[in-house]
Design a protein around this nucleic acid. Sequence first.
DNA 1: GTCTATACACCGATAGAC
DNA 2: GTCTATCGGTGTATAGAC
Lengths: 188, 188
Amino acid sequence: MSKDQAIAQLIKVFRQYGYEGTTLARLSKATGLGKASLYHYFPGGKEEMAATVLESANSWFETTVLKPLKADSEPEKRIQAMSQKINEFYCQGQETCLWSVLSVGEARNLFNSQIENILKIWIDTLTQVLIEAGVEPQEARQRSEDGIIQVQGALILVRVLNNNSPFQRVLERLPKVLLGELSHLQSS
Amino acid sequence: MSKDQAIAQLIKVFRQYGYEGTTLARLSKATGLGKASLYHYFPGGKEEMAATVLESANSWFETTVLKPLKADSEPEKRIQAMSQKINEFYCQGQETCLWSVLSVGEARNLFNSQIENILKIWIDTLTQVLIEAGVEPQEARQRSEDGIIQVQGALILVRVLNNNSPFQRVLERLPKVLLGELSHLQSS
DNA sequence: GTCTATACACCGATAGAC
DNA sequence: GTCTATCGGTGTATAGAC
């Protein structure tokens, strides 16, 4: 198993159990590697594994979700592309958000600056698209934050209710919410 | 220190660290009681402490947040009262939601049914108020879910960005969002 | 690179004195 | 009720054979 293949398995464990709930035994079982083998790939141990997994997720997010936002097509198209990729990123809402689970407890001290960075980049990128679509800058920023709020909140509801339809609903209307076609959330 | 006073301290630890990140050492430090004293109050150990804390939070939520929703005043007033109490419940957004942290990892197996119950009651109660306010039943349910989604999502954004203004904004407009005064989220 | 074996700290939990 | 002392188990991490 290559390092990249291992990372793909590790991320599932951190997502499901959070940082403190993730044990080397679970990581070992998920990858099929012994503990000592994990330390061969990640000499820094659990903390390095989490950091690597987070870096990998952020990188995937930037290239797959954010890059299409900076494309040269109409803002509407870009936002729809983003919504689709978000759906993939969270596996139709069935997967917990790595960022939200790594922002609690001790993990917060270790990783929150990385998470804060990527989230701010997301907000900024989305804001820029909305501005290009003709939305006032301040309003654009609020709507961007609101869109992300809805995605994150829906993930929690899905997890608790064991039903991913709220997530699907949020994603489907996300373009309209952002572009204001529902006259939604105008600071009014 | 009485048992109720102890519970008030325990809840802070579980909120901050989640279930697996909460250790008896931290619970002991937060309450000022030795581990053995904690076992005197909670013979079932950490699991019983978490269950008690969750039960206490749910009870507070039902009497403080949900009861006003069933009052005999206008729906608008009731919803505004709810928003105020939610603000208290989450300490102006500075406190993590106990439900969301107890719905990950192993804690999910132990507590999610309790959390699912209280969340469904919240949705149902809110839906009923909106129906009384003249909203169509299906639309009322969706808006109720959306309101809760926004509260939960805002809490995550606040935690990651170290800035509680998204939470304040969500709470301020919550009545309008629910009552549809922003023509918000009509299934259109 | 992967394994078994192991070191050492901390975990949840208990015993028993006071 | 609260404490100190301690148990068995598990946590992270390492050593060393292959």
